[in-house]
């Protein structure tokens, strides 16, 4: 069994929900990212989503767009992200790591080359925002070959046919985008999220992570009651920019926010 499945199994046995922080790799530099991955685990993260910066992040709001721009200015690339995970695995062999990004860098590297390189260094899954299951056959075959989990998104507008289509090919967990919009947007309607999650749960038994719009511990606790995992991204990146120029402070702010989310999630469930 791979790290992702193990992680969700262990959490279920402990009656806990997964906390999944997202940061953009290389924002503001690769050493910060590596150090932050470790400190996020200490602060209570169960799985890490590492953003692969892309020049045209169409599904992201301004916070993650700017993070991508900073990372690219610092020379980060898909290969660079894989190198960070390699270093992370030198001291952490248990925390699952998922890469999240867009298709074009993977197209340019080649599906097989990417899946092989990622799996080799201990990447557990990949979420590629702009490839729906209809276009995924070749990519999924490469993931299958190297035992990389394909993580997919579901959205409030996904109908039952699409939910089924995605559930059929998804591995590890499914990421439910909790609102109509881009990352970091608006505010969540918990009743709506609950209703849609119920629908999805009828169709799939895969763990459901919920993200987009998780800004603080209170929202994280509410989401933890509904889903199997809580994803927090833009709020963490804001910690970095709020302490721009002082990386230690930024990292501490991320840890503090994750701590508070962990505590309220564990109390709520």
């Amino acid at each position: 069994m791979n790290r992702l499945d193990n992680c969700f199994k262990a959490l279920k046995e402990a009656n806990k929900k997964a906390l999944i922080p997202f940061i953009t790799a290389g924002d503001p530099n690769k050493d910060f990212t590596l150090s932050c991955m470790h400190s996020m685990v200490e602060a209570g993260a169960d799985i890490i989503e590492l953003g692969v910066p892309f020049s045209d992040p169409m599904a992201d709001g301004p916070v993650i767009q700017k993070a991508s721009e900073r990372a690219l200015e610092g020379g980060m690339s898909l290969k660079g992200v894989i190198a960070i995970v390699k270093r992370f695995r030198e001291t952490d062999q248990t925390t699952p790591v998922v890469l999240m990004g867009y298709l074009n860098p993977i197209e340019f590297m080649g599906y097989d080359a990417f899946a092989k390189a990622a799996a080799n260094v201990g990447v557990d899954g990949a979420l590629t925002v702009d490839i729906p299951p209809e276009e995924s056959d070749e990519l999924l075959a490469a993931y299958e070959k190297y035992d990389l989990s394909a993580i997919f998104l579901l959205s409030p507008t996904s109908n039952n046919i699409r939910i089924k289509k995605i559930a059929d090919v998804a591995k590890g967990y499914i990421y439910y985008v909790s609102l109509k919009g881009v990352t970091g947007a608006g505010h969540l309607e918990l009743d709506e999220v609950q209703k849609k999650v119920n629908e999805i749960k009828q169709i799939t038994s895969l763990p459901l992570a919920i993200g987009f719009g998780v800004k603080n511990a209170e929202i994280a606790a509410n989401i933890a009651k509904i889903g199997d995992a809580v994803v927090v991204g833009s709020a963490l990146i804001n910690c970095i920019t709020d302490h721009s120029g002082d990386e230690e402070q930024g990292q501490q702010a991320i840890s503090d926010l994750l701590h508070s989310m962990r505590n309220s999630m564990d109390t709520a469930v």
């Binding site: 892309f54 045209d56 867009y102 074009n104 860098p105 197209e107 340019f108 702009d130």
Partner: peptide, 21 residues
């Protein structure tokens, strides 16, 4: 060379890492 941008696969201008230039 071919890649994926703005919803379709087509010829693109990108660097060796697939970032659009």
């Amino acid at each position: 060379k071919p890649g994926v941008l703005h919803g379709n696969r087509t010829y693109l201008m990108a660097d060796e890492n697939g970032e659009i230039i």
